[in-house]
Amino acid sequence: MKKPSANFMMLKLIEQNKDVIQNPIIKSFLDKKENYKLVSNAISYPSEKNKNAVDKAFKEHYKQIKKMAYISNLIHFFSIDYDKKIRKLNNRYTLILDKEITDNKDTTFKDLVVSKPLYTQNIFGNNLKDHIENIELYEALKLLTEKQLSILEMKFLKNMTTKEIAETTETTPQNISNQFNKSIRKLKKLLIKKE
């Protein structure tokens, strides 16, 4: 009895397992010439050794494909997750200070920021006089009324606007403005006289 050729056996195998051959992993495996050879060899001489050789090659091939698929997926989903993460963080720690806080329309983020007084005010004291180096100016300031002094203090030391000063002292802005101009004029006069 003549043994059928390897080619014939191979064709028969393919014929009988059409649906299996369509499986992409098997197909790509058999597309490689050396693998095809191994398989046809194992079919015509079905020894344990030949079969194992096919198995070994196939396992290598399978693993490789699995790995590639895994990494391909990893790249895709990791990049999406990363973007989501960054977006979330940016949303949570936004840099927009005057954005409204959702449930309260009047307050903004900058209202929540604690403002510490400038360190100079702490070192040199809270009075305007404490900040004066010029002796003549210091002497001149002493001659102002208490009210005028406090207005100058708020204006120059605390950087308040005329309107804000008026609100804290419970008078009109016009009054504050007048008092302010008056005290400046007085200081000017005193200093010029001294010279």
Binding site: V39, V54, K67
Partner: peptide, 20 residues
């Protein structure tokens, strides 16, 4: 660690071929 791949032969119906 990737799971152990299946054997190549478990995909095929070999019995028919071996008989011929």
């Amino acid at each position: 660690k990737f799971s152990d791949p299946p054997s190549f032969w478990c995909f095929f119906k070999l019995s028919n071929i071996n008989k011929t």
